[in-house]
Simulated scan of single mutants.
Amino acid sequence: MAAKVFAKHGLEGATIEMVAREAEVAVGTIYLYYSSRDDLYLNLIADRAEQLRARYLGIFARRLEPLDELKAIATAYLDYLRESREIFLSQHSVVFSQLHQRLKRNIEKRNFQRVMDLSHEIFGLWEGTIRRAFEGGVIANSMGPRKTAAVVWASMNGAFMLMGDGNFFRDVTGLNPEHFVDEALESHLAASQLSVRRKASRSRVMNRARIKSRARTSGETNLEEVGVRPSA
């Protein structure tokens, strides 16, 4: 209920009274659990983040191959976005540096730090998956693991935000919004894997050239050893 209010009005426009009306409870009931509107909001974000972290850790425990792990983690994130759409959209109306500056209560500050720590940890887990994919030769590009992790993460978020109004997206692009985010992710993976294949192909060509060069040099050396000059 609270997530819907924050998504509709943004953090700055939402009030505890609005949340109470949406939840059909007394305002005092909400204050039994949360010290303020900001405290309620930070708890919502942190709770969703902890659920996502638990999903990631569950996937890591399965010890999948790098590409399978990457796909599983990305799917888990897309599922999280769909399930948490309202709170996700509300986050984009918040300037977290300004939010942190106005927090006065210790519990609010602790919850803010909890949100930031979880966010850093979750991105670190995502980056670790991308890094293993690099090390396993599954994906490759010139940016390296960290920047690749940031670009793919930002791309998924941006594509997901476009899905807020399916009719608008369809009218502007002529594309069906259903599964568009999944397809965008698959496109990223396909491009990275193509880069891996091209790199491997270039490596094979260079190796063959080196082998031929060594063989030619070795042949010339053998001829010289027996007093025969190689023909031009």
Rank of each mutant, 00 (worst) to 15 (best):
M1H: 15
A2I: 04
A3C: 00
V5M: 10
K8H: 09
L11H: 09
L11Y: 04
E12P: 00
G13S: 10
G13E: 08
I16W: 00
M18V: 07
R21L: 10
E22W: 09
E22T: 08
E22P: 04
V25S: 14
Y31H: 15
L32D: 05
R37S: 08
R37I: 05
R37E: 08
Y41S: 03
L44F: 11
L44G: 09
D47K: 13
R48G: 01
R55E: 06
R55M: 04
G58P: 06
I59P: 00
F60C: 02
R63G: 01
L64H: 06
E65W: 04
L67W: 01
I73L: 06
T75N: 04
A76Y: 09
Y77T: 02
D79M: 07
D79K: 01
Y80G: 05
R82I: 06
R82N: 13
R82K: 14
S84Y: 00
R85I: 01
H92G: 10
H92R: 13
S93A: 12
Q98M: 11
L99M: 00
N111F: 00
F112D: 01
F112Q: 00
M116E: 02
M116N: 04
S119C: 06
S119Y: 03
H120A: 13
H120N: 09
G124H: 13
G124Q: 12
L125A: 05
E127F: 03
G128N: 14
I130A: 01
I130L: 08
R131E: 13
R132T: 03
R132S: 08
F134D: 00
E135Q: 15
G136F: 01
G136T: 06
V138N: 01
I139Y: 02
A140Y: 11
S142N: 11
P145T: 13
R146F: 15
A149H: 06
A150N: 08
A154Y: 03
A154V: 05
S155V: 03
N157L: 12
G158W: 04
A159M: 14
L162E: 10
M163L: 13
M163W: 00
G166A: 09
R170G: 10
R170F: 05
T173R: 11
T173L: 09
L175N: 07
L175I: 09
L175S: 06
N176T: 14
N176V: 11
N176A: 03
H179I: 04
V181K: 07
V181R: 07
V181L: 10
D182H: 05
D182G: 02
A184K: 08
L189V: 12
A190E: 10
Q193V: 01
Q193G: 08
L194N: 01
L194T: 06
R197Y: 04
R197W: 05
S201E: 14
R202P: 06
M206H: 13
M206V: 12
N207V: 07
A209K: 14
K212Y: 05
S213T: 11
R216F: 05
S218H: 13
S218G: 13
S218A: 13
S218K: 12
S218N: 14
E220C: 11
N222I: 15
E224V: 10
E225C: 07
G227K: 05
R229F: 04
R229D: 15
S231F: 13
A232Y: 11
A232M: 12
A232E: 15
